[in-house]
């Protein structure tokens, strides 16, 4: 298939998106990530029944927090895919990359650099 996706994306493997907590996403932003994309199984296909639904709710909470603190809730996004959908993964990866490029770098990262 030889599909490519942006090199800006670092993959963090988790056993299930249900494992991804609010604090994990917030820490990523605190440490300077420009965006976070959570990719879970298709809705209804979670091996642990509701892990991807939990993740979606947590992503929504993170969006609210990021909006409140002025980082921008659009920097975090949730997608659903099955493991056989390589092309869709590449498409989503490109999509989130485009969104983040449009939003620009994480303002915290810039402020940290200025302070240093």
């Amino acid at each position: 298939m030889r599909l490519t996706y942006p090199t800006s994306i670092k993959i963090v493997r988790v056993p299930c998106t249900g494992k991804v907590d609010i604090i994990h996403m917030l820490r990523a932003f605190e440490k300077g990530a420009d965006g976070v994309c959570v990719i879970g199984c298709m809705e209804g296909d979670c091996h642990f029944k509701s892990g991807n639904f939990r993740a979606r709710k947590r992503v929504e909470q993170v969006q609210k927090i990021l909006t409140t603190v002025g980082i921008g809730g659009d920097r975090v996004k949730m997608y659903n895919l099955s493991s056989g959908e390589g092309p869709t993964f590449a498409r989503y990866a490109n999509e989130i990359h485009e969104i983040i490029m449009e939003l620009g770098p994480n303002p915290i990262k810039l402020k940290k650099k200025q302070a240093a």
Partner: peptide, 21 residues
């Protein structure tokens, strides 16, 4: 403990974004 972590992280980001130490 979990909520403490989330609130502290949100506050840290807010103040960093405001340029306050």
């Amino acid at each position: 403990k979990k909520e403490v972590g989330v609130l502290a992280s949100a506050l840290r980001m807010y103040f960093l974004n405001q340029g306050e130490d």
